[in-house]
């Protein structure tokens, strides 16, 4: 009864979120005394799949049917359930696609789902997995009561460790037919060259304190320099200073980067709900009473228009000295 990791690639590279799923599956397999097998659907690079061995995957089942390159939650669900028929646990990322797939797989396999796990399971006695609830204000330890289990992990919630090894890649058919693909993709819009916010390890975010959309140049400069994604608060997205795709908070995206730098954001509870899983939070605000300082690790009480340019200069120096 192996553990299955569902793997996605983007431009022939396995997504970071899928590397996390592979590592989580391998660690879970170790706890259960079994092996971890990856499932990859559609177009993937064979060497990238074999390299999943470094994360503890022993075998990759690859159905190269190119129809999978156009995402369809029902077809992917059917394929996973077919290939995982003899497995006890399915692990996948709770990224955008995972949020569409995991609930379907849970129903199809009659397997209890943890939608957004943040830690490895406890397997002594009951099978228990923890997940954030109440927008990060609490952690719930869920027991999965079914023999089969689906664990959808929150992106960036565990640090992968690479070892040695290579996985055997085996061509398989997952048994889906053309009729299983019911979603027609008409067009795709991707901001090219930008780092996807929900996958980013570093995020620079700004809010109303910046006074107007014309002042975002320094935020983008800092983000580009650091290799960070940009984000914003709700009021700024609502008045269209910034695109909705950047809005983090309760009604926007929930992110948990390693570093979240918030400039000119007061830190309303709705905003914190989207970012309080960040490992390190830096807050820059003119108001020392801003509630965000209570959630911050590092605070700078000062004017964004003088602090951010200084931060850019300091980061440049740091970068120059560390290379």
């Amino acid at each position: 009864m192996s553990v299955i990791a569902y793997i996605e690639s983007n431009n022939n590279r396995v997504k970071k979120t899928s590397l996390e799923a592979a590592y989580y599956a391998a660690q879970t397999a170790k706890l259960l005394g079994t092996e971890a097998i990856a499932v990859a659907l559609g177009t993937h690079d064979a060497a990238e799949l074999a390299a999943l061995g470094q994360l503890g995957i022993t075998k990759v089942l690859h159905d190269a049917n190119a129809r999978f390159d156009s995402f369809d939650s029902g077809a992917v669900c059917k394929a996973i359930a077919t290939l995982a028929a003899n497995s006890s646990v399915v692990v996948l990322s709770y990224n955008q696609n995972g949020k569409a797939i995991a609930p379907r797989v849970s129903v199809r396999m009659k397997a209890g789902l943890i939608p957004g796990a943040t830690a490895l399971p406890e397997t002594n006695g009951d099978f228990v997995v923890s997940k954030n609830v109440f927008s990060g204000k609490a952690i719930a330890h869920y027991q999965i009561k079914t023999d089969k289990k689906v664990i959808a992990i929150t992106p960036n919630s565990l640090q992968i460790v690479r070892g040695e090894g290579s996985a055997a890649v085996e061509a398989v058919s997952s048994g889906v037919s053309d009729a299983d693909f019911v979603t027609v993709i008409k067009s795709e819009e991707k901001a090219s060259g930008k780092i996807a916010l929900t996958e980013a390890e570093l995020v620079v975010s700004a809010g109303r304190g910046l006074k107007g959309p014309e002042n975002w140049g320094m935020i983008e400069e800092l983000a580009n320099l650091m290799g960070a994604a940009t984000a914003c608060s709700r009021p700024v997205a609502d008045v269209h200073w910034r695109p909705h795709e950047e809005h983090v908070g309760q009604t926007g995206f929930t992110i948990r980067p390693n570093l979240y730098i918030a400039v000119g954001i007061s830190g309303a509870i709705q905003h914190l709900a989207g970012v309080n899983g960040s490992k390190t939070i830096v807050v820059v605000n003119t108001d020392p009473e801003a509630p965000f300082f209570k959630a911050a690790d590092y605070g700078v009480v000062g004017d964004a228009f003088t602090v951010v340019p200084k931060l850019i200069e300091s980061y440049k120096k740091f970068k120059a000295s560390s290379h």
């Binding site: 997504k15 901001a191 930008k194 996958e199 795709e245």
Partner: peptide, 9 residues
Amino acid sequence: IEGGKEIVE
């Protein structure tokens, strides 16, 4: 989708 949107039918 990651880093963007797609229009589906």
